[in-house]
Simulated scan of single mutants.
Amino acid sequence: MKTTLDTPAPLNVALVVGSNRHGRFGPVIADWLLGRLRDRADLVPQVVDVAETDLPTTLAPTPEATAALADITPKLASADAFVVVTPEYNHSFPAGLKNLIDWHFTEWRAKPVALVSYGGLAGGLRAVEHLRQVFAELHAVTVRDTVSFHNAGSSFDDEGRPKDPSAPDAAAKTMLDQRVWWGRALREAKERRPYGS
């Protein structure tokens, strides 16, 4: 897409749904967030769902792993930025999400990651803080502001919409604005000079 300084190309965003548990609530939040992403002309989203990947837990190059990676790795590699939706399990994030992250390295490098969490009273914020450390090790940049849903199940109606959308919509806008700034800045920087050179 040809652009000018006034109209930069939209950022390709991978929306990572981080839970694979039976009865998970993540898809409800991901669907709501996907609506916020699609409302923006500066973002082009695609979904990467941990529950739809079949990566083994041992990091060995098996035929099963190769097949799973052939589907998911190009989506991560082509993304300019990420939004990760995570629940909090035992004061951290899910093993399936960690497995997906660990199977990749260069796909995360020098790209911004926005974090959306859900859980009980803590709203998944402890999972967010652990993910910040993991993504820092992978040379990714996590944006400061997050969206978190405390007692998420009671925050949404039966059609998957927040009962009071004003606070989450405002938080999502702030988070996505930051992610767009970082995404453009890092993309432009890498075009001038490859990361790590």
Rank of each mutant, 00 (worst) to 15 (best):
T3E: 15
D6W: 14
T7K: 14
P8Q: 04
L11M: 09
N12Y: 00
N12Q: 13
A14N: 01
L15P: 03
V17W: 02
G18W: 03
G18V: 04
N20F: 10
H22P: 12
G23D: 07
G23W: 02
R24V: 09
F25C: 08
F25P: 05
G26H: 09
G26N: 15
P27A: 05
P27S: 08
I29T: 09
I29M: 10
A30Q: 03
L34G: 13
G35P: 04
G35H: 09
R36L: 09
L37W: 06
A41L: 11
A41W: 00
D42A: 11
V44M: 10
P45G: 07
V48M: 05
V48T: 03
V48Q: 03
V50T: 10
T53E: 13
T53N: 11
P56E: 12
T57E: 14
L59S: 08
L59G: 07
A60D: 12
T62P: 03
P63Y: 06
E64I: 00
A65L: 07
A65T: 07
L69D: 01
L69V: 06
L69Y: 06
D71S: 12
D71V: 14
P74N: 00
K75N: 05
K75H: 10
A77M: 11
D80P: 02
V84G: 01
V85W: 01
P87R: 05
Y89S: 07
Y89N: 11
Y89F: 15
F93G: 01
A95D: 14
A95E: 14
L97G: 08
N99S: 12
L100W: 02
I101E: 02
T106P: 03
R109L: 10
R109G: 01
K111A: 02
K111G: 01
P112E: 05
P112R: 05
P112A: 08
V113C: 07
V113N: 08
A114T: 03
V116H: 01
Y118G: 04
Y118V: 08
G119H: 05
G119T: 03
G120N: 12
L121D: 14
G123F: 04
G123D: 06
G124Q: 04
L125F: 09
E129Q: 15
H130R: 14
V134S: 11
F135H: 10
A136G: 12
L138V: 08
H139S: 09
A140K: 03
A140F: 02
V141G: 02
V141W: 11
T142K: 02
T142V: 12
V143H: 00
R144I: 11
T146I: 13
V147K: 01
V147Q: 01
V147I: 09
S148R: 04
F149S: 03
F149A: 09
F149I: 11
H150T: 15
N151Y: 15
F156V: 04
F156R: 02
E159V: 10
R161H: 14
D164T: 12
P165Q: 10
P165V: 11
S166M: 09
S166A: 15
S166Q: 13
A167H: 12
P168D: 04
A170Q: 14
A171W: 01
K173Y: 08
K173W: 00
M175Y: 00
M175C: 08
R179V: 15
R179F: 07
V180T: 14
W181H: 12
G183L: 02
R184E: 10
R184F: 02
R184Y: 06
R184G: 07
K190W: 05
E191R: 10
E191S: 12
R192C: 02
R193F: 11
Y195E: 02
